[in-house]
Amino acid sequence: MFVELNELLHASPERPEQGTFTLLRDTRTDGSFLVHHFLSFYLKAGCKVCFVALIQSFSHYNVVAQKLGVSLPAAKERGQLVFLEGLKSCFEVLFKEEPPTGQPNPLQFIREGGSNLKALYEFVRTSLTPSESDSWKCPVLLVDDVSVLLSLGMRPVDVLDFIHYCRATVCSQLKGNVVVLVHSREDSDDTENELVVNALCHQSNLILWAEGLATGYCKDIHGQLKIIPRGPAVLSTERDLPRTYQYKIQDRNVTFFARGMSAAVL
């Protein structure tokens, strides 16, 4: 959890917002630091988190989360975190002989070859539906990242359907939050991906867009972050205007500053 980003977003772990769909988008840079931020933010806020991690292994997220002051294994034991490790499930689907007992594997679609994300949705729904004994604040779904689903042969329509179902269940029904990461590029030839990105932008309540600098790589400024709130126009106030900040990622923190105000160039 990066304190400066919380201030910019007017968010605090004491009272997390409910019912928002946040889109994390990165262009020419790696926006995964935002995923780490939201993971630790919601765990600290006491929300029930379902993390669909398709691109990295659990140990990777765990090491980074430790640096940010959160222990993922402990959260898992408490029942606060449901972690779907895509790489591991994929291995189990394809190479483990014994038939799975009870529930189907959420990544069943890799084996079957069809374009069916129903099992994944069911996984999200069952893991986030609160039971009697739960005392967690609100449910949160995190996906890192959606572009992988397209690489695995899903059609854009299926991916959008999946996100829509998740939004309907988590945001509306359970009054929780959905946070999703996508990659994009302006000059991209990947029309399917652009289609998904545009549609998700349209549906989102808040877009955090990390971009690499247009002038190229710089040691002291790793990129710029556009914060685009997308509330209803009538209610928008001064603080709901799109804003742009530059950032620098450090070992355990990210510092944000206004454009051109990097400590290195002043």
């Binding site: 690499g212 247009a214 002038t215 190229g216 400024i221 051109g260």
Partner: peptide, 9 residues
Amino acid sequence: MAMGKKHLD
């Protein structure tokens, strides 16, 4: 990563 060359940030 250098894509545009028009301006400095």
